[in-house]
Design a protein around this nucleic acid. Structure first.
Lengths: 192, 192
DNA sequence: TAAGATTGTCAAAAATCCTAAACGTGAGAC
DNA sequence: GTCTCACGTTTAGGATTTTTGACAATCTTA
């Protein structure tokens, strides 16, 4: 279904920003309200910019995600932090994987990373219980194809396509095709 | 008088954070209130954590500084961002000025910088109208001594001592002593 | 089709924040 | 000393936010 999030060039207003963040984590107003210990009505009003929440309220809400105030205001929804990169965006990259990987997230501040080679057999699926952990994660599909879900975004990636996202956004990998999918991934900070 | 700001290892609460920021920019509650278009009472209550301000109020207040919400929550008051470095903290540094300068702010993310050699004659003073401009600024005293004021912090620096601060914090240099003061400074981004 | 659950929204009451105007303190000037 | 001024604090009341408890719209399932 890939209900692409509308990439407002700048999510300046708090309401839109909260809504984008909430959807990015796959939460409903009520679910987030339950976790945060506030009412769903409050979240509704805030997201419509009908009210300007107090810091304490916003903090409670973000704790339900969880996300720090600093991260909330720092989060950048502009396309330079985009989740997906088309294969042709990487055409000028050398075939050395270590180098091509860095190029995938070239607009993101450099960090120490560690690469992995992953193979998804036909039908493989990391499952409904979306993965979520600290750090950042990126990868490039080598052969076969795979459906990757990150927050509310979902896409079928073919050889040459790539991804880059924060690992604390719930994510899922599954291979619906008839052949194995091989991809090279990297995560930060190195955990293996 | 050097009313040293209490460096709470983590200024977690909004009130303390706002107070530190306000003092760092040399503003009184009333002056900030006037610039921001709120009342001084509101700022007083917020700084005492008697109320949790709404985002709109906090934004108005920060606009009076000015400082973005993202910067406000990101600002780090921990000692690793400290303003002053004792001379002995630099002892292991080679006598090459270009190298010693980078070591002064070694805990700060590296940035492109440009160095200057400055001489302050006896009585020299950059004046009451505190300097303020974009970028960052650091330096090391070579000979003589100088009183440097940065926000609410003030200190007499002797040869071997050094400083590092964000240039948008109001600052002032003056040499009350009988001999010229020579110091090597660097600022970022390069402006000369 | 209809029942049931889930979603986002809304109106009025309760809770919280912001303003206006006062107060107390401390530092200079005379 | 007293006067004056600037500072941060406090209080009462008006303004804004949050809760409570509903509502209609959209799915899911039978």
């Amino acid at each position: 279904m890939s209900a692409a999030v509308q990439n407002d060039e700048l999510a300046e207003d708090i309401g839109t920003r909260l809504k984008l963040v909430r959807q990015m984590f796959g939460l409903t107003q009520r679910e987030l309200a339950r976790r945060a210990g506030v009412t769903n009505g409050a979240i509704s009003l805030i997201e419509q910019n009908r009210v300007s929440p107090s810091i304490s309220s916003l903090k409670k809400i973000l704790d339900g995600i969880p996300l720090s105030l600093a991260d909330f205001f720092t989060l950048n929804f502009s396309s330079s932090d985009s989740v997906f990169f088309a294969g042709e965006e990487l055409t000028e990259i050398s075939y050395d994987p270590a180098i091509s990987m860095r190029m995938v997230g070239r607009k993101v501040k450099g960090r120490a990373m560690q690469m992995l080679r992953e193979v998804y057999q036909p039908g493989a699926d990391t499952g409904d219980a979306m993965l979520r952990h600290d750090g950042e994660e990126c990868g490039l599909v080598i052969s076969g194809s795979i459906i990757i879900t990150v927050g509310v975004q979902e896409r079928l990636l073919n050889p040459g396509d790539a991804y880059y996202f924060r690992s604390d956004i719930p994510h899922r990998f599954r291979n619906p095709g008839p052949e194995p999918c091989v991809l090279v991934s990297a995560n930060s900070p190195p955990s293996f």
